[in-house]
């Protein structure tokens, strides 16, 4: 994958993450602290976290084709680096004020990560299905 393709793909991932963070914040907030009120600056939070969350994707970049095992290892490494980056950023920026907040935040990140991968898998499954139909047609 060249750099342009990689950036294009990560831009798409960025928007999926932003949507995921917004949804996860809404769902968790309604259950944990339904009375909380925020100012307009709260709208920037998913955008900033989305950008921070996209940076560790550099781990997944490779000029040559990686095997499934190599890619799986990089994915696992990516997840832990992502969690660490976001928690460190959250604690330093003052968005996370306690261990409890950091733990529930880490859980949210896991849910978003899982959802992002599930959505990507569903999209890819549909593409694979279309390709298989096309191949069957070609093969007669």
């Amino acid at each position: 994958m060249n750099v342009k393709e990689f950036l294009k793909k990560n831009l798409m991932i960025y928007f999926i993450i932003v949507t995921g963070i917004t949804a996860a914040t809404g769902i968790l907030g309604m259950n944990i602290d339904p009375e909380a009120r925020f100012g307009y600056e709260a709208f920037f939070s998913p955008l900033i976290f989305g950008a921070i969350a996209t940076i560790p994707s550099l781990i997944l970049y490779s000029k040559r084709e990686l095997s499934l095992k190599q890619m799986l290892l990089r994915r696992i490494l990516h997840f832990f680096v992502l969690e660490l980056t976001l928690i460190v950023f959250g604690l330093n920026s003052g968005l996370l004020e306690s261990v409890d907040a950091a733990v529930s935040f880490a859980a949210s990140v896991f849910i978003v990560y899982l959802l992002t991968n599930i959505i990507s898998y569903i999209i890819d499954s549909k593409t694979a299905n279309d390709i298989n139909k096309g191949l069957k047609r070609l093969q007669g």
């Binding site: 994958m1 060249n2 393709e5 793909k9 997944l60 084709e65 990686l66 499934l68 890619m71 799986l72 994915r75 990507s120 898998y121 890819d124 499954s125 593409t127 694979a128 390709i131 298989n132 191949l135």
Partner: peptide, 27 residues
Amino acid sequence: CVKPALNGRFTANLLNGEQIIISRQYV
């Protein structure tokens, strides 16, 4: 048949049982 693999790539299962990678950029 073709199946989704990690990171937007696909694996093609060949009739002889081998598997090869289809890169995202060629999809």
